[in-house]
C-alpha cells in the first residue's frame, strides 16, 4: 500500500504526459492533415489537465462562494483554461479551413502526396 499511494497520487501527471506525448506522436508520425489536427487538439487538452489538476484540493469544492463551505479549489487555472478552450476551437476551425483549401488546390490531404505533387510541378 505504501508504494502504491504515491504512484496513485501522481497518476494524473502520468496520464497528462501520456496524452501530451500521444498528441505529439500523431502530429509527427501521421501524414493525414485532419489526423494531425486531432493530434494537436489532444496535445492541447493535455494542457487543460496539466493546469487544472494542481488546482484541486481534496476536501475542496467548486469555487462558487457559499456559506456552507470554506475550502475551495483554485479558481485561477479554471479562468485561464476556460478561455483557452474557446480560443482552441477557433484556431482548430482556422486549421480545418486551411485543410479544405489545401484539398481544393491539391486534391488530397495526405502530406506525402502533396510533396510529390510539389516536386512534379
Amino acid at each position: 500500500m505504501n508504494t502504491i499511494t504515491p504512484l496513485l497520487l501522481h497518476y494524473n501527471y502520468f496520464i497528462t504526459i501520456f496524452l501530451m506525448v500521444s498528441g505529439l506522436y500523431i502530429v509527427i508520425a501521421r501524414g493525414n492533415m485532419i489526423k494531425k489536427l486531432v493530434g494537436l487538439s489532444l496535445f492541447q487538452s493535455s494542457v487543460y489537465l496539466l493546469y487544472v489538476s494542481p488546482g484541486k484540493i481534496l476536501e475542496g469544492t467548486a469555487p462558487i462562494i457559499d456559506d456552507a463551505y470554506s475550502i475551495y479549489s483554485n479558481p485561477l487555472p479554471h479562468v485561464l483554461i476556460l478561455t483557452a478552450i474557446v480560443v482552441g476551437v477557433a484556431t482548430l476551425a482556422l486549421g480545418l479551413a486551411l485543410v479544405v483549401r489545401i484539398h481544393e488546390a491539391y486534391g488530397t490531404i495526405e502530406e506525402d502526396e502533396i510533396f510529390d505533387r510539389e516536386k512534379g510541378l
Binding site: 474557446v86 476551437v89 477557433a90 476551425a93 480545418l96 479551413a97 479544405v100
Partner: peptide
C-alpha cells in the same frame, strides 16, 4: 463575439 464567430465559421464551411 463567440456566438457569431462559431455561426459564421459554420456558415463558411456549409457555403463551401
Amino acid at each position: 463575439t463567440v456566438f457569431s464567430t462559431m455561426l459564421a465559421i459554420f456558415y463558411a464551411f456549409s457555403e463551401r
